[in-house]
Design a protein around this nucleic acid. Sequence first.
RNA 1: GCACCCGUAGCUCAGCUGGAUAGAGCGCCGCCCUCCGAAGGCGGAGGUCAGAGGUUCGAAUCCUCUCGGGUGCGCCA
Length: 576
Amino acid sequence: MFRDRICAAIDTLGLASSDGEPLDLSRVKTEPPRDADHGDLATNAAMVLAKKVGDNPRALAQRIADAMAADPDVSEATVAGPGFVNLRLADGFWRARLAEIIEAGADYGRAALGAGTKVNVEYVSANPTGPMHVGHCRGAVVGDTLANLLAFVGFEVTKEYYINDAGAQVETLGRSALLRYREALGEDIGAIPEGLYPGDYLKPVGQALAAEHGEALLRMAEGEAVAIATDAAIEAMMAMIRDDLAALNVHHDVFFSERTLHADGARKIRKAINDLTMKGHVYKGTLPPPKGQVPEDWEDREQTLFRSTEVGDDLDRPLVKSDGAYTYFAADVAYFVDKYERGFDEMIFVLGADHGGYVKRMEALARAVSDDRARLTILLCQLVKLFKGGEPVKMSKRSGQFVTLREVVDEVGRDAVRFMMIYRKSSEPLDFDFDKVTEQSKDNPVFYVQYATARCHSAFRQARESISGVEADLSALDLLTHPEEIAVVRKLAQYPKVVEAAANSREPHRIAYYLHDVASEFHAHWNRGTSDDALRFVKVNDRQLTSARLGLVRGVLNVLQSGLGILGVEAPTQMR
RNA sequence: GCACCCGUAGCUCAGCUGGAUAGAGCGCCGCCCUCCGAAGGCGGAGGUCAGAGGUUCGAAUCCUCUCGGGUGCGCCA
């Protein structure tokens, strides 16, 4: 909002561009300089406008600086470097910001960026064939946090989970469950055959089937029995997955079943393909063999293809297999159409890095279906490497040696998992050290930030013990005069901008980094009280001053709670 | 072969969508507790932002190429 004041000041200078056109102020930016010594705010206005106006940047900067100096909230306006105007703002300005922060409470940082925009965030979507493993953690947290963040800035967000409950995979699941059913009836099933799911987690499904159906399934046609077992298994797996997600504090609004697309003679898929065909995106033909290693059994076959190359893809994509069945991608098409028809302006997909090859075809799909109206965002999360005591944890799916999501959450706690999974750009690989994240020290960012909130509460507790009934008091804020106190307020005042930038760039990790910064600022200030008695929060003989400083603490706590809330991480009142 | 992601301090990574002398944590060196929780803080050393061009007042950031690492590449879900 200070930008507006600067633009207004520029207006008063009566500048005119040499070509007679109105001045374009859109490139004028104001932001806090990286180096705090330069002031509170810097603007590039003079450098951006100098050429147009036909003045040299430093001279123009000086005129802008002079105009800004008239603003009562500006304590100093100077010209620096190639033509920056640096502004130092009066302490009163910052105290007013602190008052805003305190008054806004939990709403501080909220925005209306997304007002009227419907966003669908799809994440996790793990196959319902077993418990979730650690690999799913990151996507779950990134998706959930991003959804929270977007909701915080006003988007109408739907959190969605796509259940891959159709196809060969779940039939295998059904067969595996059926085997466990026979086991539950007392049969010796021996080793689980190759190709079926060996995990013990299917035993309860077998037992439930036995309890419900007795020996009835044994007498049925195999297909019928498998179908019943499949249904039961999927239901059980999804219950387990929801439990796992709940342990991570992740809750979806919509669980979308792939089966519904295949239901009714694949009505939805047929309709979707028909839509694409009407728009001229579908043809029958053959694809060239892949360039890398050509499969040994390669042969040209005619298929129904989506002409995705015309909308940005590298290769046309098959919709119908040569045997007449629909491809997985065909279901994706139908699913996307369904989402689009539900009125979402933007679809966000949080996927694992191994889905990189999917990006282009999804973008092509979005363009074709929505005539380029739908916005599509795909976040690819890189791998998480697990460490224990500095040693990498070996995992292999083949040997069944994988760490489940539940194990990780149970061992280190959901807060640690959530914070660490978001404490990195999602496009960057991530190391997760079991020992580090449970450490109670500043080396552990989760602890460090939570400790700051605990310290805030501690300050309140201390204050109330020594001065009965003392509270943060807005009318006392004028007593905050130390530069260090103002510095803390400056940091807090960045929150709305950080939130906005994180939301706009769809980069929730920025919140986590910012919170670490705030905590750092607060810890530093807290420590000043140990060396300088004058800077303590609690001044036993000065109720007014104490309530002013509690105001600062309140502001810090407010921002930390808000940010942690977006991350889905608790803000503890004390550490244990 | 093609496409996407990535290359920043010894290590792990930020860098506010183009700004000033490139930051943080770890590790290393030094300092601060007769209690506001030191479960913390302060300071120091450490960089050719992979390399080369280009765009402009200005590039770690945008464009092109090269080198190096990761991932994925018909009818699998």
